[in-house]
Amino acid sequence: MLNGTRRLGALAIAAAIFASACSSTAATGTPAVTPAPAATTAAATSTPASAPSAAPSAAAAAVTCVTGTITASGSTALQPLVDAAAKQYDAACSGATITVNGGGSGTGLTQVAAGGVQIGDSDVTAESRLKAPDAAKLVDHIVTRQGWIVVTNKDVTGVTNLTTQQETDVWTGKDTNWNQVGGPDLPIVLIFRPSSSGTRTTFKKLVLNNATEATGGQTLTEDSNGTVTTAVSKTDGAVSVIGFAYYNDPAAKPILNGLQLDGVDATVANMASGTYKLAADGHMYSNGTPAAGSLTEAFLAYMMSPAVQGTLIPSKFYAPVTK
């Protein structure tokens, strides 16, 4: 089933990806970690290929091609992944066009329930937002896990880890200076995500245990990972939460301090194993079970295929859901 050269190629890619992933965590004081199970999955299940090649062509070999056109819409956090997967699928299958739109998880859920799009991407479950009859119509496909990391401005030296309790104190406004959590004498500036966003919802539930956050004064609310990165890197004492993909972006990583949570490094491997808790499932909803032989079915299956789960997902700093 497997060609030795191909395996080496896949391993090399995976290793390179993880090397870059781990160099980010070096800032928080961790040594490099061995590739996650994901990387080995990639190598073990890849279809035969005569020469070492880049991920897209490996993907091409594993695809069940169905022609047609579908639109996926929703979560901006999942967008980079779904977008890349759709581009790979399109490249492998002529006659298939998958358009990926952002717009937010709410848009995705609304539109897939209304039949405006075939797939709704969401960071949150349909049950948590839609009315029960609408939510019941939708079929959930959990395609990945995504993680978030708490980041601070570079001048918050000496803080490499915050416990859940410390996070709660910081974000509810109980602690207002970094010296209360072992940092320098510097006021804490909170940069929130919009309260409707998946990032905020997940963080609040998993880390703050639904405590009420501080408001007013020097708190900012920024919609976007890009703006948050800029604001945190330029503001003394700023702290915020961003997605792994954005944290590991070569433009962002050098200008931010990434923190451990309860002593656990924010790595894809830790997220996959469940030890890093600031993570949530990425959902792709279809309206009912997709028809057999439809492009929706084929694309959702492709999202679970080794090409995506083993190669693409880790390369975008998400965690796979298949072993």
Partner: peptide, 21 residues
């Protein structure tokens, strides 16, 4: 200080909320 306006709140939240909630 940071503030918010009607338009910016609509822009921020519209996509993250579902129709009818």
């Amino acid at each position: 200080q940071p503030v918010t306006t009607l338009t910016s709140q609509i822009t921020l939240d519209m996509g993250n909320t579902v129709f009818g909630e």
